[in-house]
Design a protein around this nucleic acid. Structure first.
Lengths: 115, 115
DNA sequence: CGATGAGTTCGACAGTCATTGAACCACTGA
DNA sequence: TCAGTGGTTCAATGACTGTCGAACTCATCG
């Protein structure tokens, strides 16, 4: 299609692959950011996380290829958005529980302010 | 404690680590098996999956160190059990959604026999 | 004691992954 | 047309991972 950017059919993606997509702190941050912002420009995501462009591109691809997000080109920029509904359809509850728990992501339970 | 088998406090485990623990087809199989069997002897798990002992031991350790299961020694055998309640406590919904979707694990949607 | 069964550990090997920096490409705006 | 911006690709590197087989530990049973 547009270039070689392929967005796999979620039916072709196993849960192991999706979990692998999520199983990285950087990508979890990206996921959270995109969940908060909705569809947004890629640079917004990685600029806010202090990622190098190439590294960000790498992780965007990982997320895309594991079916977690969709990229679209608008004008000269790339936009990215979680494939939330499709994921919910294929793996019910998974994205929700990941999103719900990202905030508990870091081993910070010794933090007393967790009220 | 017993040997150097450490079972991390789940509060010290980030969601990325847990997701990483789950993000492997072999380990997902093990998780499913243990979910079905409840606490069970390790050999039951890996014998049923055709894993070599050393490989199984490797994955058991991965699961244990990411807080997904607990091992106990009874007599001369090792038993393993999911830390289901603790996980639910720390990452609500996560284990449930993983378990619920393991059956959709393999990219087999194009399989016509899925009736 | 010796043998057996259950599991762990070790060394090795191949494959994957995250990260970086530089080069590159495509589009926009002057 | 030239410069700048947004993003991708490439090559390289170090780290980690999954798998295997062989050696090892440790408790139990004869």
């Amino acid at each position: 299609m547009t270039r070689d950017v392929l967005h796999p059919d979620l039916d072709q993606v196993g849960i192991a692959a999706v979990l692998h997509g999520f199983a990285d702190p950087v990508r979890l941050h990206m996921v959270r950011t995109m969940h908060e912002l909705g569809e947004c420009q890629c640079s917004l995501v990685y600029a806010g996380l202090g990622l190098s462009k190439s590294n960000a591109s790498h992780h965007f691809r990982a997320l895309r290829e594991s079916g977690i997000l969709r990229r679209t080109q608008r004008g000269s920029q790339q936009y990215a958005a979680l494939r939330a509904e499709e994921l919910e359809d294929r793996f019910p509850g998974l994205l929700a529980s990941v999103l719900a728990n990202i905030d508990a992501a870091e081993p910070r339970a010794s933090d007393p302010r967790t009220t």
